[in-house]
Amino acid sequence: MNKAEMKQAVLAAKRHGGLSWSDIAEAAGLSPEFTCSACLGMNHLEERSATAVAELLGLSTDVADALQTFPDKSWVNTIPTDPLIYRWYEMVNVYGETIKELIHEEFGDGIMSAIDFTMKIDREEDPKGDRVHVTISGKFLPYKSW
């Protein structure tokens, strides 16, 4: 089973079972954000977590095996057309250089890791309309001279 087939099986079982990503993450013993990413094929799970997810969803060991396979992190579209994902690209285009300048000013020349990285998504109630609260934390990796 490849990652695309795994993704479709997981999404169908999640929908059929009426489960949330928090339910699935609890079985995996991981955060909802990371668990969802792995179930969508962009990360992998260790054996215990993969087995627990497949069992919770009533899916085969083929799904558990696919969840453990290292992903090929590639994108079909350079700029996605899904409105929610596109807005993230828009934010990076508008504020990316600002983020880079402020990180360099605070930390020096380097990058923020997307490997040593955490993310948390929360709902923030607001009388003017609920807000999406995203917290992203990545390790700073300085460029080295040699």
Rank of each mutant, 00 (worst) to 15 (best):
L59D: 03
G110H: 11
E101I: 01
K120D: 15
V63P: 08
M42A: 08
V92N: 10
S20H: 06
P71M: 09
T61C: 06
L67W: 01
D130M: 00
Y89F: 15
L84N: 02
L141A: 07
W21D: 14
E33Q: 13
K100Q: 12
D130Y: 02
G108I: 07
L84V: 14
L102K: 10
A28P: 08
T98V: 14
T81G: 04
F70E: 13
T51G: 03
F34S: 11
I79T: 09
K100M: 11
V53I: 04
V63D: 05
L40M: 12
L59N: 02
G29T: 06
M42S: 04
K100C: 10
F70H: 07
D72S: 10
T118Q: 04
I111D: 04
S49M: 05
H104V: 08
W21I: 07
K144I: 14
Y95F: 15
M112C: 15
I24Y: 00
T135L: 07
R87Q: 15
P71L: 07
E55R: 10
D122C: 06
K120G: 14
E124N: 00
R48I: 11
M119Y: 00
D122H: 03
E105F: 06
E124L: 06
A64N: 00
V134A: 15
E124K: 03
N93F: 14
K100A: 14
A54P: 02
N77F: 05
A52E: 05
